[in-house]
Design a protein around this nucleic acid. Sequence first.
DNA 1: CTGTTAGCGCCTTCAT
DNA 2: ATGAAGGCGCTAACAG
Lengths: 337, 337
Amino acid sequence: MSTVKEVCKLAGVSTATVSRTLKNPERVSEKTRERVFKAMQESGYRPNMLASSVKTGKSNALVVLVPNLTNPFFLKIIQGIEQAAQEKGYSVLLGDTQGEPERENEIASMVLSNRADGLIHLDHSFPFSKSDAHLADRVPVVSVCERIKGDKEFPVIELDNYAATRSLAKHLVNYGHRKFGIIAGQEESRIHHDRLAGIKGVFADEEIPFDDNMIVGGAYSIEVGQEGARELMAKPERPTAIFCFNDDIAIGAIFELKKLGLRVPEDVSVVGFDNIKVTAFMDPPLTTIDQPAHEMGRKAVEVVLQIINNVPLRRNREIFPFNILERESSGPVNPNF
Amino acid sequence: MSTVKEVCKLAGVSTATVSRTLKNPERVSEKTRERVFKAMQESGYRPNMLASSVKTGKSNALVVLVPNLTNPFFLKIIQGIEQAAQEKGYSVLLGDTQGEPERENEIASMVLSNRADGLIHLDHSFPFSKSDAHLADRVPVVSVCERIKGDKEFPVIELDNYAATRSLAKHLVNYGHRKFGIIAGQEESRIHHDRLAGIKGVFADEEIPFDDNMIVGGAYSIEVGQEGARELMAKPERPTAIFCFNDDIAIGAIFELKKLGLRVPEDVSVVGFDNIKVTAFMDPPLTTIDQPAHEMGRKAVEVVLQIINNVPLRRNREIFPFNILERESSGPVNPNF
DNA sequence: CTGTTAGCGCCTTCAT
DNA sequence: ATGAAGGCGCTAACAG
């Protein structure tokens, strides 16, 4: 790989002129510009990004921390991030944390060692290690779809989870359901709270009794959905409708309900959350909440770049609108069930 | 962010000693080592990766080119890549190309500008622009699951696609099927050829006639699966079994067949390819080919690192074993159909 | 408009 | 075992 110097020799100019030809072409006469470009061609010159980054202190890269790469919902977000980043001339460093704190720490530390200028976090954990915590103050961080817990309030891009589950709950209540089950994900997270509160709010409005032992689950996976459905249907008072806190859980739940010989939605209604692509093609198509994941990813990039460029943020929370998709996995309560 | 110099001052040593403390601790006396570490702590020092990369000429990063981030199969590969890279101290730059040549060119050029040391490609296109082609000769490139077309033979990690579709075809023929349809992805790629050849090989063995107008499709998406199924079922001689060249296509095909009032597998058998997670939880669970995507991703990292480190490769093609999963979307031919 | 010069932060001989 | 000094490739004043 050839360097500036070779281009200098070939074009008969100084390094400054070469640099300028690339960064401020208008400050170079057309003649020399052409000569320099030609020299670049001939020598196969490529500017060394790293070298210029050392100078400017900017790596033009963003790190994305994702708890689980195989969750299609995250992928939609990441795709949005990726596209927005490309448009802005940034590249994306991907870190699959598997929810393990050590991995989070290690990946997050990339932004401390100048590999990246900012960090986008798709989980609720504080990603830095204790010893790095004080360094993290100056680092541009944004969280998407979750809120990072801890003292510092990081900017966040999120859905109105409370209103979303309210609308799901109303939808099911309107169908006559009174006995519910919930299969949740990780319970420590903020979105868990918001979603639960939304449901319980409707129950309170409608004076529907609900016992917390009808909440099962613990992770956002198909397997948890299966296990959760089995558990709920073994309760003394079986639910006629089940809230699943994401679509993967709903996929597992529906699979298991069918295996138990139950029909969806004739016997049990099931609703999901996220609207991953495949839910529209399931049997039955899943009633769920559509999150504008792609747009949320784009917004995350926008916000983190504002922080990087010291543009003051309008607000610390960006709340995106949801959309309830009433498909065929939910229906009227079955009086004979 | 503090630099070496501050550590020097605090510890009362030279920059060389600080550098050595990190890279060759054994060459520094225990006393000073401790002093230096303490100084690092106090000043919150983080080595600037970029700066050292300029010196060493290694960025310790790999670029991954993906045609479509939302395809779950690619995600399994990427997860494998990510993990292996992390273990080796490399970070992963992700580039979603959307199959667009310009994007490919731009992302691939990162490896020319020293942002990355190597490139892993999940598509069959030659990723560099024409003007970069001659520079690409010296760049470590590996392709996974596809073979990069062009003059140069890049190392490739792949499945025995021929044998895999052979086994699917035998499976269906054993069930008595004689009338087939195929919904394919992009037809220019090598894997398309191999998979088609595998199927036709079995047809030849069994003297089963097959007309190429029973091949439809054009992309690896759910929508193409839907459209393909509709098209095939409108043919004068309807197939009793359909090969889908990936699982997304199969998902769309099954959805559409049901919509047409047909039962799977009682009326029509459907088989997929890849074994993405959700296929095990569909109704009916999909018969498909399991690819060890995770391991293939890991292998890709291993191979590209060998090239980077000038370790001679044992072979230019690594062929991974497949596994046919006979689930419930395929069954005996229906004589009344 | 162009060249000279002085670094960016780190690594690495070469001395001591 | 440690320090001084030069340089990786590029950028950014400052001159001219």
